[in-house]
Design a protein around this nucleic acid. Structure first.
Length: 325
DNA sequence: TGGTGTTTAAGACTAC
DNA sequence: GTAGTCTTAAACACCA
């Protein structure tokens, strides 16, 4: 993995594949789904390299969205005007990348459409994500400003659903921790909590000076989070996944998640999803507290118990990975 | 009309 | 060398 010096990425191509970039963007959204335009914006905000030749890389990005099964398309609801659908990560798209490298994936994520027992078809995944979004938003609305902090163990599902040590490759802290490790092998995210999907400008400075590497390829016009991105970093609005909640948050019910509608229905029978889904099992499933991106911003809320709905048994057992490894 | 989504193809690169 | 992955390009259809 290339680790060029400070600022060398500012105008160079980041060492991430389009899949990684797209996944980052999706992961950074509270609902874990973004329209294409927002994905574009995220990438351009964070990676100056992609502010040029937009037609080229955006075409590639669209190609990746359509071509890779790890991305699922979630249609807008009728009351959600706008172009295009939402895009989300397939709940079972975990562990695709080689350790530490986001240049290449371990294996291409592929849904086995012939697997009649596979619940992780795009339709199910879409429905599952929708339910997740609704749950999060419900919790958001109930708790006021931000979601209650979820203990990492709550995501770990008691170690039942996820293999030990599994980390979702698209988890921002995983990306950060894997990509940038201290010389001694200690990821900086373990030393310094990462409050958001990306370090804040001041933290960037801190990290750059302390680690000597920094995030030269990841900065916006005003730092990590620039004015173009409606993310309130100072408000402490962070989701349970440790990503900033956009002020809109769609939480007031203004913009509810889209209805899960199968885009690519498969002939296989679709087993019913669990009635009470838990957070996406493979996403940030076992992020240790020390890696929690929210730890610095929401330190006071760290001890807040998870909402019952979020701590319910995960459908991970049903949403077992059918990715081809 | 422009954005979005799908599909195909080719070349480069990397791992085994 | 082969297979898999990634990137880029292009064409086409659909839709707001």
């Amino acid at each position: 993995m290339p680790r060029p010096g400070r600022n060398t990425y500012s105008d160079q191509k980041p060492p991430y594949s389009y899949i990684s970039l797209t996944a980052m963007a999706i992961q950074s959204s509270p609902e874990k789904m973004l329209p294409l335009s927002e994905i574009y914006k995220f990438i351009m905000d964070r990676f100056p390299y992609y502010r040029e030749n937009t037609q080229r890389w955006q075409n590639s990005l669209r190609h990746n969205l359509s071509f890779n099964d790890c991305f699922i398309k979630i249609p807008r609801r009728p009351d959600q005007p706008g172009k295009g659908s939402f895009w989300a990560l397939h709940p079972s798209c975990g562990d695709m990348f080689e350790n530490g490298s986001f240049l290449r994936r371990r294996k291409r994520f592929k849904v086995l459409k012939s697997d009649h027992l596979a619940p992780s078809k795009p339709a199910d995944a879409a429905q599952y994500l929708q339910q997740q979004a609704k749950l999060r938003l419900s919790a958001l609305a109930a708790s006021g400003t931000h979601l209650p902090q979820m203990p990492a163990a709550a995501y770990n599902l008691g170690g039942v659903a996820q293999p030990s040590g599994f980390k979702h490759p698209f988890a921002i802290e995983n990306i950060i921790a894997r990509e940038y490790k201290m010389p001694g092998g200690l990821a900086f995210s373990a030393m310094q909590p990462v409050p958001a999907a990306y370090p804040l400008p001041n933290q960037l400075t801190t990290m750059s000076s302390s680690l000597g590497t920094g995030w030269p390829h990841v900065y916006g016009s005003a730092g990590m989070i620039d004015s173009a991105t409606p993310i309130s970093m100072a408000s402490g609005d962070y989701s349970a996944y440790g990503v900033p909640l956009k002020p809109l948050c769609h939480a007031a019910g203004q913009t509810l998640p889209a209805i899960p509608v199968p885009i690519k229905p498969t002939p296989a029978a679709v087993p019913a999803l669990p009635a009470l889904p838990a957070p996406i099992p493979t996403l940030l499933s076992n992020s240790p507290p020390s890696l929690s991106p929210t730890s610095s911003q929401t330190a006071t809320s760290q001890s807040s118990p998870a909402t019952p709905s979020e701590t319910l048994t995960s459908p991970a057992s049903a949403l077992h990975s059918v990715a081809v490894h």
